[in-house]
């Protein structure tokens, strides 16, 4: 059949078909429609198969995601539930309290030194975050934008220093801080120093950020007569909001959840504990667990709430920093 024939035929077929439809009784019409369906199937079926396949895949993914979300959230839901348990304080094999109440929270604030620990942690985290921000910005801005003799050597030296386990330095730092009276009960100043002093070494993420700001901006400002310090605080800093917030957030979260340095500096004197060391101590021995397990849960909830709220508002910046940091290494 030639093309012309086909074209000429088409309208005729349709006309014939329509005429037939009109003439035929209902039952036959149904048959006709059914028949028509199978005719198209060969093309449609593949399409439908694909669709079914992707739908199946999507459903599987949804199931996995729901299970995952549950696995990720359930421990946190459990900890909240157990913090409201009043009938017993020890570790039990069930989750849902038989008797609800705020007893554990009340006891946390009256019977343990939690208020002191919380205050310690809060002061340390806030001060450390601010100083660390300054340190990191100084270091990363310099390494990213300024070229000077010894720059590469400095970066290599920091890379090598970073390969030593940080805990190694604590042995001697503890003695130095102890001589200066900044350990145990007075751990706040000592811990701030420990967190902050070497924080310039964590410049990688923000250097990666500064690297992405076009250098032509600096040059334009320099041509206009700005000195390097003016370039920093008039041109670069206003553009650096995301990295400033990211650095502050991580610098705050670090001390907030740090265990190892805090336990080293406080060294078994409960007045100097931060929340991590304090809460760990609450459940450190079997007898402590029996007496304090639900109190620990309450403490965990209280410690997690501020940081979670903060995180929810600043999540965008955190995500940017984390992804950017990994890409630029």
């Amino acid at each position: 059949m030639s093309e012309k024939d086909l074209k000429n035929n088409e309208p005729q077929v349709v006309e014939e078909f329509e005429e037939e439809k009109l003439e035929q009784p209902e039952s036959d019409l149904r048959q006709e429609v059914a028949f028509d369906d199978t005719a198209v199937v060969s093309r449609e079926k593949r399409h439908m198969g694909m669709k079914a396949k992707t739908r199946a895949a999507n459903i599987t993914i949804y199931v996995i995601l729901v299970i995952m979300s549950a696995v990720w959230l359930v421990p946190f839901i459990f900890i909240v539930l157990q913090s409201f348990r009043c009938e017993s304080t020890y570790l039990t094999g069930y989750v849902i309290p038989k008797q609800w109440g705020f007893d554990n929270y009340a006891r946390l604030f009256t019977e343990t030194k939690f208020p002191r620990w919380f205050l310690n942690t809060f002061i340390i985290s806030v001060v450390a975050a601010v100083i660390q921000l300054i340190m990191v910005l100084c270091m990363s801005y310099t390494l990213s934008r300024l070229r000077f003799k010894g720059r590469k050597a400095l970066m290599n030296a920091m890379l090598i220093l970073g390969m030593f386990p940080g805990m190694l330095t604590m042995i001697v730092l503890y003695r130095i801080l102890a001589d200066a009276g900044m350990t145990q009960g007075n751990s706040i100043a000592g811990l701030i120093l420990v967190y902050v002093a070497s924080s310039g070494m964590g410049y990688y993420v923000s250097k990666g950020f500064f690297d992405t700001i076009p250098k032509s901006l600096d040059e334009a400002a320099r041509v206009d007569g700005a000195n390097r310090a003016q370039v920093l605080y008039k041109i670069i800093l206003p553009l650096s909001k995301p990295i400033v917030i990211y650095t502050l957030l991580t610098a705050f979260m670090g001390p907030w959840g740090d265990y190892v340095f805090a336990s080293y500096v406080a060294f078994n004197v409960s007045d100097g504990y931060n929340v991590a060391v304090g809460l760990q101590w609450l459940i450190s021995t079997p007898s402590n667990i029996a007496a304090n397990y639900t109190i620990f849960c309450a403490g965990g909830v209280i410690v997690a709430i501020p940081i979670t709220l903060l995180f929810m508002f600043l999540q965008k910046y955190y995500v940017e920093g984390v992804t950017g940091g990994a890409v630029k290494g």
């Binding site: 900890i79 570790l91 069930y94 809460l279 459940i283 849960c297 965990g300």
Partner: peptide, 30 residues
């Protein structure tokens, strides 16, 4: 967001809690 929120909760809390979940007389064994 569900996954990212778990980052916000200090690691020591989740770690200590999970370690007690799997303790000899913990929830899982219960």
């Amino acid at each position: 967001t569900i996954l990212v929120l778990t980052i916000a909760i200090p690691q020591f809390i989740s770690l200590l809690y999970v370690s007690k979940m799997f303790a000899d007389n913990g929830i899982i064994n219960g």
